[in-house]
C-alpha cells in the first residue's frame, strides 16, 4: 500500500468513526462510555491520515510509489463498507432468540432496596429482574414500575409477550438479553418495537432458583406506549 493509498484508507476509517460517534449510531455497537475514547481514536486516525497526506505531497514520485504498509490493511475498509451499506442496528428479537436470558448472580449480602414512595416509578430492567429473583423482602410486590425495552412475540408466552433489554458490558458481541414475560394482555406490537411499559411483578409460586421454577420473571401489564427511539443507549450496563 502506498502512502497516498494509506492516507485515503485512514481518512475513510477515521471519518466513519467520528461520524457514528457524533450521530449516536455507535450506541448500537458499544457501551455509551466508549463515546470519548472512540471520538479520540477517530481523531487520531484522521490525524495520522493528514500527516501521510502532507508527506505524500512533499515526496517525489518514486518515493510515493514505494509500498509502505502491508496489503492486509485494505481489510479495514470492510467494517466501513458494512456500516454504510447494511447500517446494522442494535441487537433485537433475532439475537434474543439465540441467547439464554440473563440470570442475575446471587448477591453477597441480602438485598435491602429503598424504592421510591409513589407508583409507578422508573427502574432498569436489570434491577427489576434482580429484585424479583433475589430480594427476600419482596419490596417489588404490589408495586408498579416503568421499564423500557423491546417487544418480542414468543410462542412460549401464551397470553402476552416478552419484554427484553440487552445488557452489554463492552460491545454488542457480549450482549445478554434480560427477558420479562408480560402476561394478561395479548401483544399489540410487532417484534422489535420499542415500548415504555408500566408493569407489576407477579411473584412466582415456585422460587426461580428451583428446578421447576418459572423460566422467566413474570409481570402483569398495566399500561404500554410505543416509543420512537431507544432512550439513550439501547443497552443497559451491568455497572
Amino acid at each position: 500500500m502506498t502512502r497516498f493509498a494509506r492516507c485515503v484508507l485512514l481518512l475513510a476509517v477515521g471519518t466513519i468513526v467520528v461520524r457514528i460517534t457524533l450521530d449516536g449510531h455507535f450506541n448500537s455497537f458499544v457501551q455509551q462510555r466508549m463515546r470519548w475514547p472512540l471520538l479520540l481514536a477517530g481523531i487520531i486516525v484522521v490525524g495520522l491520515a493528514v500527516v501521510d497526506l502532507v508527506i505524500a505531497s512533499r515526496d517525489d514520485d518514486e518515493t510515493n510509489q514505494r509500498p509502505i504498509s502491508p496489503g492486509v490493511g485494505w481489510l479495514l475498509i470492510a467494517p466501513v463498507a458494512v456500516i454504510i451499506s447494511v447500517a446494522p442496528d442494535a441487537l433485537g428479537a433475532s439475537a434474543a432468540d439465540r441467547i439464554d436470558a440473563y440470570d442475575p448472580p446471587a448477591p453477597i449480602d441480602p438485598l435491602a432496596p429503598i424504592l421510591p414512595e409513589t407508583d409507578p416509578f422508573p427502574i432498569k430492567m436489570l434491577d427489576f429482574v434482580n429484585l424479583a429473583m433475589w430480594d427476600e423482602t419482596r419490596a417489588l410486590e404490589g408495586r408498579q414500575v416503568d421499564v423500557e425495552g423491546i417487544v418480542v412475540n414468543d410462542p412460549e408466552v401464551a397470553d402476552g409477550f416478552l419484554l427484553i433489554r440487552f445488557v452489554v458490558s463492552c460491545c454488542a458481541a457480549d450482549g445478554i438479553p434480560i427477558k420479562v414475560a408480560v402476561t394478561g394482555t395479548p401483544s399489540a406490537f410487532e417484534d422489535d418495537t420499542w415500548v415504555r411499559a408500566t408493569i407489576e411483578w407477579i411473584p412466582p409460586d415456585v422460587p426461580y432458583q428451583d428446578e421447576n421454577g418459572p423460566k422467566f420473571v413474570e409481570a402483569r401489564l398495566v399500561d404500554i406506549t410505543e416509543i420512537d427511539e431507544p432512550p439513550g443507549s439501547p443497552y443497559e450496563s451491568p455497572f
Partner: peptide, 17 residues
C-alpha cells in the same frame, strides 16, 4: 446477515480505541 453485521462492526468498533 443483519445480526452478523452488528456483531462484526461491534467487535471492530470496540477494539479501535
Amino acid at each position: 446477515l443483519r445480526l452478523w453485521s452488528t456483531l462484526f462492526v461491534s467487535i471492530t468498533v470496540q477494539a479501535l480505541p
